[in-house]
Design a protein around this nucleic acid. Structure first.
Lengths: 133, 133
DNA sequence: CAGGATCCGTTCAGATACTG
DNA sequence: CAGTATCTGAACGGATCCTG
């Protein structure tokens, strides 16, 4: 085969990989959870339902933009519900769905691992950092 | 209290929050896992130990830079080991530590959830997208 | 109260080229 | 073989201002 296939083959491999990667289910979940605010919202709503402004206060530091964006994507994925009550002014309540609660369990697993192994990781880091220098 | 405290209070709250957030154990783990290549390396090494170039081939699409960066941070955290054999040319073997293997179990939990609930999430998305428009 | 719109700085991944 | 060094563009988060 001529040389032109070398680069082409690599490109093709990468495209296939990207496609696989994008469609990978666990990848999607990981990407969701990795979002800075998602888990915080999940945990906050796990305790009890909250209104928009209550969430904003509870998660101190989140901008309206990010909070809305996060809530919208969670709602879209069927993880939280959004209930508008047409009072004056309007009130909007957010709550976890069953699906959202089940995801919260997974987050709990991660948290358990983190708490159980954090000191090991930090010890490893110190070792590593003191190795040379 | 005078008005200047309003903004100050918010800033302070945010700083405290950021500090809390940065020191949150599960946050650190989530951030690690969210890294695009970390889980892929973990899974690849979970099957069997591999050399640098083998990893690069197995994870098609990763640049040398990213692969090295990922491996270094994993090594630093005590999740993988790096063994240099001074042959000519040198060979470098990477392997999971026990800690790395235990983290792989957590990733497995996420994967399980993803596979079990992916269709629900996608159904929710279709619902949401068809709601208006 | 609950957001939408916009701008802007920083971060970060990837491509490329080079080295022991 | 196993990286390192540098550059650049695209994405993203945050701040700010505005609305029903």
């Amino acid at each position: 085969m001529p040389t032109l296939t070398a680069d082409r083959r690599r490109d093709q491999a990468k495209e296939e990989f990207d496609a696989f990667f994008a469609s990978c289910p666990s990848r999607k979940v990981l990407d969701r959870l990795s979002d800075k605010w998602v888990t915080l919202v999940l945990v906050a709503l796990g305790e009890h339902d909250l209104r928009y402004s209550e969430l904003a206060r509870r998660i101190a530091g989140v901008s309206p933009k990010m909070l809305t964006q996060t809530l919208r994507s969670l709602e879209r994925d069927g993880l939280v519900t959004r209930a508008v009550t047409p009072t004056v002014p309007v009130t909007v309540d957010y709550a976890l769905t069953d699906l959202g609660r089940s995801l919260l369990v997974v987050v709990g697993k991660v948290k358990d691992w983190a708490e159980a192994n954090l000191h090991q990781v930090e010890a490893a880091r110190e070792d590593y950092d003191n190795r040379d220098e």
